[in-house]
Structure formats: C-alpha cells, structure tokens
Design a binder for these strands. Structure first.
Lengths: 204, 204
DNA sequence: CAGTCGACTGACACGCGTGTCATATTGTGC
DNA sequence: GCACAATATGACACGCGTGTCAGTCGACTG
C-alpha cells in the first residue's frame, strides 16, 4: 500500500473509532488493530492522537466554512428566502454526508484539550458572527424579525446543530429535504400558533 | 467542619473545577488542593471521580425534570402561550442560577463514560419525547404548526441549549427576561420575514 | 548476490493520575 | 487529662495508555 493510501486508511479508521468511542475512550490501540497495522506505523503518519483528531475535524470545519454563501438581496434570480434555504441545505448536506465526522464534531470535539477547544469555539464564533451580521442586514431589508440578532443567531445555530446531532447520533435515516424544509419553516414562521391570545409582554 | 458541610464544600469546589477545566482535564488533585484538604479525605466522601461528577449533574437534571409542567389548554387562568413561556422561564431560571453546573451539563457531560452518556442521552430523550407529545397535542388544538413534531422538538431544544450554552460559556451577563421573551418569540413566529417571495416548496 | 532504502513492527519505558491504607490528628464524653 | 472514636492525612502502589526506537522485512538496484 502506498503512503498516501495508508494515511487515508488510518484517517478513515480513526474517524470511525472516534465516532464510536468518543475521543477520550478511543485508544491508539483500537485504531491500530482495526486498521491492521502496528502501533509504530501509526506514528509514522501522525504525530499523536490529537493531531489525527484535529485533522479529521478540521476538514469538515473547513468545508463548512466554505459552504456558507453571503445572501445577496439584489440577486434577481434567487429570492432571499431561497438563498437562505440553500445555505441550510449546503450545511446539512456536508454534515449528513459524513455522519461519523459529524457525530465527532457535535459531541466529542469539545473537551479534547484547551487549545483545541479554543479553536472550535472560535469557529462557532465566526459562524455565529457571520449569521448575526446577515440577520442585522436582513433587519434593514425587512426580511428578518426585529429583536436581538445575537440571540437569534444562537437559537438558529443551536436548532440546526441539535437536529443534526440527533440524526447522526441515533444513526436514523432522515430525509435531507425534509430536514431542510422543516428547519427553514421553523426559522420562517416558528412552531407555535398562539398569536393574539398570549397575555405576555411583547419582546423588545 | 461537620460531615455534611465538608461534603457540600467538596461538591461546590468540584463543580467549579469541572466547570473550569472540563471533566477529563480536571484532576482529583485540583479539587483537593482547591478545597484545602488531603487526597484521602476526598475519598471519604465520594467513591470516585465519576461519582461526584454524576452527583453534580444529577441534581440539576432532576430539577430540570421537575420544572417542566404539562400545558393545560382548559386552564382559564393562563393561556397556552403563557404556560409555554412559563416552562421556558423555569428552565432558563434553573440553568442561569448555577452557571457552572450548566456549563458542565452543556459541554462536558457527554463523553465522560459510556454508561453516563447513555443516562444523559436518555434524559434528553425523555425531554424531547415530552416536548414532542406536547407539540402533537398542540397540533390537535391548532396552537402548533403542522409538520414533523420530532424535528420541531429537536430544533426547539437545540435552540435553547445553544443560547444557554453561549451565555454561560462566555460568562456574559444576559437578562433572563430578554432571553425568555426572545426565545418565545423565536418559537412563535421564527425570525425570517420572507413570506410569499420564496419559490421554495412549502414543507408538508 | 551484496547493498541500500523505505516501510513496518511491537516490546518497552515512561509519565500520570487514581484510589488505598497505615498512621496521625482532632474532638468528645467522663 | 485520659480513652476512644471520628476525621483527616499523604506517601505509595498500581494500572493504563502513550509514544519511542532498535531492529525486521522485502523491494529495488547495480
């Protein structure tokens, strides 16, 4: 087996092991025996456990980062709603494509080590800021509800994260379109239909 | 110091250490030195590291479980909307009350060990099922939008979890009312205002 | 066939953190 | 101020997983 193939093989095996056991419970021994190689071979290809983990997660993070396209309200071809929906779809597609990595990203990636935590939180921050800015722009255009955009961006990100986590966590099949449309509808009109009857104070 | 006080002291210190360092990075040594006691003393009060962690998390989980009250549509005094808002408020109050524990619960609790993971996931499942059932009931009453209730319950839970996580993670002050009202508004009417213009397929 | 080189091997040493236990210290009733 | 229990101590042994490195193997070369 050539060097690049071996490297890729170890990466794939490691991804599955991390996904199954979680970062801390996953032993190099597990990866090595599953891959059918010796302990030492692993260290010819990766510096250490953290390095291979980081590489696995980084790939998906990078793809996610690329997948989000700024909404252009002046685009005559695609409505703002459709552009938003497309963003959701791209994120969902990437994350459902490689479920093992998604599970790692959404449940084990935090708590690996302080430096990596910072990196991951920085990524989420970046996403969140981008979303926040988009929402603010949207408010100016009247396509986003009034209110705290920072909170909205958290709520939005969290909603999608949890849905994707549940789907990959349970290994359940779940139709991509169903998820994208369901999430989009949720962001567009919420889920409660209690308008008018609530005696609560209106926000803002 | 009496036995119960000492026990409580260790619990409090441990909570802070877990919150700061995360489960795996937190050493018994850290807890013990912070509490100003000897290593052996710790083991007089708790069986092991996992046991004290579990006790910390269990408390909050139990409180959360108790805090959610079934919505009663026939209640003349409180509208359905207000009852839902109250549920959100109770959850938020509990989780913002003890931010250290909330941070542990929302970022470190998964990946501690397989048995504990199952337990935690079972709890989330329970919450999710309860919510799902409520949403289904709500659909019957016309106060919940049509659509996949399971997905809605994930989106809802995730939205709240992320918002709370971000707040405690950053140690940011965030007004409880602002959060409750913002989240409620989000669940009620979403955040996008792109009605009519979207050429996308309507869900369901 | 000897020589060289890259890929692979796996026994082992090392560090680290946990949990124990024999001992010390503190507190209490008489 | 003694006896005895309750509480606390911390050096230590143990297990475990990581990362290393001296050495094997086979392929290719002149």
């Amino acid at each position: 087996m050539g060097k690049p193939e071996r490297r890729q093989q170890i990466l794939t095996v490691a991804r599955d092991v991390f996904s199954r056991r979680g970062y801390h419970a996953a032993k190099i021994e597990d990866i090595v025996t599953t891959a059918g190689i010796a302990r030492g071979t692993f260290y010819l290809y990766f510096q250490d456990k953290r390095a291979i983990f980081e590489e696995i997660v980084d790939r998906t993070i990078a793809r996610l980062g690329m997948s989000i396209v700024r909404v252009d309200p002046s685009d005559a071809a695609r409505t703002v709603g459709d552009q938003i929906r497309d963003n959701i779809r791209r994120v969902v597609t990437i994350l459902l494509e490689d479920r093992a990595t998604t599970k790692i990203l959404l449940s084990d990636a935090l708590g690996v080590d302080p430096a990596f935590d910072r990196k991951l939180l920085a990524f989420y921050d970046e996403l969140s800021s981008m979303l926040e800015q988009s929402l603010r722009d949207g408010q100016g255009l009247g396509v986003v509800a009034e209110g705290d955009v920072r909170l909205m961006s958290w709520l939005t990100m969290g909603a999608l994260k949890e849905a994707l986590f549940q789907i990959v966590q349970r290994g359940a099949e779940y139709d991509e379109d169903r998820l994208v449309d369901g999430a989009f509808a949720f962001f567009r009109v919420g889920c409660l239909r209690v308008d008018g009857e609530s005696a609560g104070v209106a926000q803002q």
